[in-house]
Write a protein that binds this DNA or RNA. Sequence first.
RNA 1: GGUACCGUGGCCGAGUGGCUAGGCGGAGGUCUGCAAAACCUUAUACAGCGGUUCGAAUCCGCUCGGUACCUCCA
Length: 488
Amino acid sequence: MENKLTIYNTLTRKKEVFEPINPPHVGMYVCGPTVYGDAHLGHARSGINFDILFRYLKYLGYKVRYVRNITDVGHLENDADSGEDKIQKKARLDQLEPMEVVKYFTDRYHQNMDHLNNLHPSIEPTASGHIIEQIELVKKILENGYAYESEGSLYFDVEKYNHDFQYGKLSGRRIEELLQNTRELAGQEEKKNAFDFALWKKADPKHIMHWPSPWSEGYPGWHLECSAMGKKYLGETFDIHGGGMDLLFPHHESEIAQANAAMGHDPVKYWMHNNMITVNGQKMGKSLNNFITLNEFFTGRHSALDQAYKPMTIRFFILQAHYRSPLDFSTDALKAAEKGMHKLFEAYHLLENLKPSKTSSIEIKSFENKCFEAMNDDLNTPMVIAQLFELAKAINLVNSGRESLTQNDIEQAKALMKLFLFDLLGLKDEKQEDDSELIDYLMGTLLKIRQEAKEKKDYATADMIRNELAKLKIQIKDTKEGAKWSFL
RNA sequence: GGUACCGUGGCCGAGUGGCUAGGCGGAGGUCUGCAAAACCUUAUACAGCGGUUCGAAUCCGCUCGGUACCUCCA
């Protein structure tokens, strides 16, 4: 592997050269959605960013096992482990079985991810399917003395843990500060300290999602599923754990604590976190009620949207920012992305008909080097895209005869575009294609009539044809080689 | 209040000591019956004030402004 991939490790707050624990195998775990609502733009971001990582690692020759969980239980509705399970709340409101809600939103999530052209993870485990593993993990933590029972529930003893290990090493928090700053919240009497978190919660009688355990009829704490499933499918220590920045604390912090408490060592070598998507500079999120779901983007049905946006536009928009930077949403930015992406595709198609020369005035190899350099630099996709734009410009110049490329270089350019644009960035040209012979023939006839009208200077007829077709979202382009048409 | 991060041209967004980022939009041009599309060229920048340095958007300090996490969240 001549490519030196570096990734930013949240744990060390530095970029580090990526070296797998057991090459050529790589284990990566990414926190997936809680399936009680439609996925929004934020879910798209983490889905896409870790898809890029998955694709690139595979390209580099690693055998990657990519695990992304579905949280379908145990996610508490509000504060302090005393709230109501999110899935259950939604189920009660809709008069549905909890698992019906889970199925519905899981399917929609999958559909959205497919539209965004994200590859499927290798394994997609559900929390509800791993209750036994979670109970086993709790037992271990209890055995090792880092948990205590209270009223049928089990809590993680953060203070004791911090004594032997270090709670807060991922998020840079100190326990003394947590002590000072934790607010007074109701329903915490069972806990020794406000920052202790639930490993197992006893279900109250109203609670319909519950499982038997040695302690009570109940359900597992939120942080547990990732610890249990990561361990099960990737081992006690694995390479990469990813997720949104908002999960850094307390979720990932607690995962580290659970692993140490159970196994005595850290679970993960590289922690990666993608930044948030903002609207007018503010985080897009459920609590702020300013999120736009992916389905709303795809259909255009949302008051903040002026039109429908294609999944690839969303993907390109997201990839134009580095994953660790906040990304501000606006329809203008989205439109700019749409146009820019179109330009890249046009250049790619141009390569098919480019006239080769005896010599090349452009060095394709340097574009390639820069693209790899950018990918290796903590997945700098905006830099990759900038390089592809440069390449597109070069292709256009060759097309206009101002620069030249040999046949061999044209092939290289094509391979380069294909590799980065389609295989690694995972974009695809979604232009509506209707190449049925009938349409082709009809369009050919219409264009012929229009051409004849133009030759007779009957511009009224020529323009009428153009205008009528425009209503069908068919665009006529008069080029030097004659009129061409395409769907908008 | 604690912790972390950020402030780049009309908009989005890379870069982090000296070398054009890029896209959208604007302006000019090529093409065209007109238009659209496409292509080419081009202008506009590093929040403010100090400091370090031969040299700072990039390092340091202060000020102002903003965001995230500290409670569920991608």
